[in-house]
C-alpha cells in the first residue's frame, strides 16, 4: 500500500475553507492523504496560556458544529482516501518553529490555494502561508490549487459544500 501523503492546509475553521480539501482530493484522485487543517494563532506568551491552555481548548472554541460536520461529511465521501483528518493550531510565526512543526509532523506538502485570501479569524491569527513562503526550504513542498472562489462567497454552512460548480445532475 502506498504511503498516504501528509499535507498541511491552512484553515480559518469555516466550512468554506474546506473547499480546498475537496479540490485537493478531486485533483489528485490516485492519492490518499493525511490532512492537517492548521490555523496560525500566536501564543500570548502568558503563564496561564503556557500552563493551562492547550491547542485543544482553542480548537474547541474555534471549530463550529457545522465545520466538524463538514469534516465528517468529507471523511464519509472520500472514505479511505482520507486516512486521517484533524485540526491543529500553530502558535508561532517563527520560521524555525514552522520548519520543525512540519518536520515533526512529517508534512510532505503544504497546500497553497490560489484565489483564497487570508482573513484573520482572531486578533492573534496570522497567515501560515506567508510564513511558509518566507521560509521556503526543500521540504515540505508546495502544492498549488486553483480553488473555486465563487462558491466561497456564500453563507458559511455545511450547505455550501453541496451544489458545487461541476456537480452531477441525476435528473
Amino acid at each position: 500500500m502506498v504511503r498516504a501523503k501528509r499535507v498541511l492546509i491552512q484553515t480559518d475553521f469555516t466550512v468554506n475553507s474546506l473547499h480546498v480539501v475537496m479540490d485537493l482530493l478531486d485533483n489528485h484522485i490516485d492519492d490518499s492523504f493525511v490532512i492537517i487543517l492548521a490555523h496560525g494563532m500566536a501564543s500570548d506568551n502568558s503563564i496561564t496560556e503556557l500552563l493551562g491552555i492547550h491547542a485543544e481548548d482553542h480548537l474547541d472554541s474555534l471549530q463550529s458544529e457545522d465545520f466538524i460536520k463538514a469534516c465528517q461529511l468529507m471523511c464519509s465521501k472520500y472514505g479511505e482516501r482520507i486516512q486521517d483528518l484533524y485540526s491543529d493550531i500553530i502558535t508561532s510565526e517563527n520560521g524555525n518553529y514552522f520548519r520543525n512543526y512540519c518536520k515533526g509532523n512529517r508534512i510532505d506538502h503544504v497546500v497553497v490555494a490560489e484565489n483564497v485570501e487570508f482573513a484573520k479569524l482572531t486578533a492573534r491569527s496570522f497567515d501560515l502561508l506567508h510564513v511558509f513562503k518566507k521560509n521556503k526550504s526543500k521540504e515540505p513542498s508546495a502544492v498549488y490549487l486553483d480553488t473555486d472562489v465563487e462558491i466561497k462567497q456564500s453563507e458559511d454552512k455545511i450547505d455550501s459544500l453541496f451544489f458545487r460548480k461541476k456537480w452531477n445532475v441525476t435528473f
Partner: peptide, 27 residues
Amino acid sequence: ADLTVKAINERFHIKTDFTLLPEDSMK
C-alpha cells in the same frame, strides 16, 4: 420521492446532487 413528485406534476423538475455520497453505503 423524486419519482412520486414528478408523477404528481410533470412540470416539476428535481436536480439531485449525489456527489457527496459516502463510499460506504451502510452510512
